[in-house]
Design a protein around this nucleic acid. Structure first.
Length: 213
DNA sequence: TAGTAGCG
DNA sequence: CCCT
């Protein structure tokens, strides 16, 4: 399987400055992305992590790359080892790295080098409450978010959780890049509606690329 | 405070 | 739906 070129897609600036939507940016390479994802998951399976307050998250997670985002009773952080296996997280595949760098470049970030990819699996009803990505060291680096499978409603809010959020749908292959003034905006995913995608079945997979360390 | 529940 |  060869790695085709990404790009040739114009980012749509959303109503929020610093938030770019790249429609179907990942579509052309979905086969290799899904093959690489399948390999990762055999090494680091999806699991429902627990928040510091003790609740299991409805979204199942795993990671690839040098660092992986985890949560447990101790808090949110990045680790080099998978707490489940004590092994390093699986290496970030070239397909993931190339995709995320191309998306960041297209959105105006020339030198994005992610060291972390959080992989989220949403089954029917799973959600992600409004939150900020703020466990990373350098907020000048953007966030690159890749949607695969069943569509979901993405919420983009302000800088306080109570700020009103804008919602828009994300479909298979869509990529969202945010940074700069928007880097610390609250965002989340509304409960996933029952649906089926031809390639992925009943689930939505989200890849979130970050420079964490 | 990346979460839920409600003697709200 | 809103809040803590």
């Amino acid at each position: 399987m060869s790695l085709d070129l990404f790009g040739n897609i114009t980012p749509i600036e959303t109503a929020l400055a610093g938030v770019s939507l790249l429609k179907e940016f990942a579509l052309k390479n979905e086969a290799i992305l899904l093959a690489d994802l399948a390999t990762i998951v055999t090494q680091a399976p999806f699991r429902h992590m627990v928040t510091p307050s003790g609740f299991a998250m409805s979204v199942a997670m795993t990671n690839c790359g040098e660092l992986g985002w985890v949560t447990d009773r101790q808090g949110y952080r990045y680790t080099q080892l998978d707490p489940l296996t004590q092994a390093s997280w699986p290496a970030m595949p070239a397909s993931f790295l190339t995709l995320s760098r191309a998306a960041a470049f297209t959105a105006g970030y020339a030198d994005f080098t992610p060291d972390a990819c959080l992989i989220n699996r949403y089954q029917t009803g799973a959600r992600m409450g409004l939150h900020q990505d703020k466990n990373e060291r350098d907020f000048t680096q953007p966030i690159v978010s890749v949607s695969l499978g069943v569509p979901a409603m993405f919420q983009f809010g302000g800088f306080k959780r109570a700020d009103k959020a804008l919602s828009f749908p994300l479909y298979h292959g869509d990529v969202v890049v945010w940074g700069g003034d928007a880097r610390l905006r609250y965002h989340g995913i509304l409960p996933l509606k029952a649906n089926v995608h031809p390639a992925l079945g009943k689930v939505r997979i989200n890849l979130t690329f970050r420079k964490a360390g």
